[in-house]
Simulated scan of single mutants.
Amino acid sequence: MGYRVAADAVVIFHFIFIVFVMSGGILALRWKWLIAMHLPAVAWAMSVEFFHLYCPLTPLENTLRAKAGEGGYTGGFIEHYLVALIYPAGLTPGIQLWLGASVAVVNITVYGVLVRGWRMRRRQL
């Protein structure tokens, strides 16, 4: 049971990381200290998608599931709702490039707004 819980925790962390990559820039508009964590996360996510790297969370989760005696993603809330979002069926290199581009566009837009706000405040001083 412990290995299954740990594998589920890895999936939850993976999902939270993806959400953070996509929306962390918006949070950084409010909390500037998040930029130091968000930009490296964005760089990693874009690298995984653009260069087709294997995220280390995936083999960790698979190892934990194997130790729990599971043979894949069967049963349970976590597997049913989150795994399909993180590991979609039919994921191709082309789709990965689009995903990476989406990460780039969203974050370039958000950080563009952030930098523009900084410049406007600096001019007012």
Rank of each mutant, 00 (worst) to 15 (best):
V5C: 04
V10D: 05
V10P: 08
I12C: 03
F17E: 01
V19R: 08
V19G: 12
F20W: 03
S23T: 11
G24P: 02
G25S: 07
L27R: 04
L29I: 04
L29A: 10
R30E: 01
W31E: 00
K32C: 01
W33D: 12
L34M: 06
I35K: 14
I35Y: 12
A36Y: 11
M37L: 14
L39Y: 14
L39G: 00
P40S: 02
V42T: 13
M46N: 03
S47I: 13
H52E: 07
L53E: 03
C55M: 07
P59F: 09
L60D: 03
E61Y: 00
E61P: 07
N62K: 15
T63N: 09
L64P: 00
A66Y: 06
K67D: 07
G71L: 01
G71D: 09
G71T: 05
G72H: 06
Y73C: 03
T74V: 08
G75A: 07
G76Y: 04
I78W: 09
E79F: 11
E79K: 06
H80I: 01
H80R: 13
H80Y: 07
H80N: 04
Y81E: 15
Y81W: 12
A84Q: 15
A84H: 11
Y87L: 05
Y87Q: 06
A89V: 09
G90N: 09
G90I: 04
G94A: 00
Q96D: 03
L99A: 02
G100V: 04
A104D: 12
N107W: 04
I108G: 05
I108C: 13
V110I: 01
V110K: 04
Y111K: 11
Y111L: 07
L114D: 08
V115E: 14
R116I: 02
G117I: 06
W118A: 06
W118C: 10
L125R: 15
L125A: 03
L125N: 05
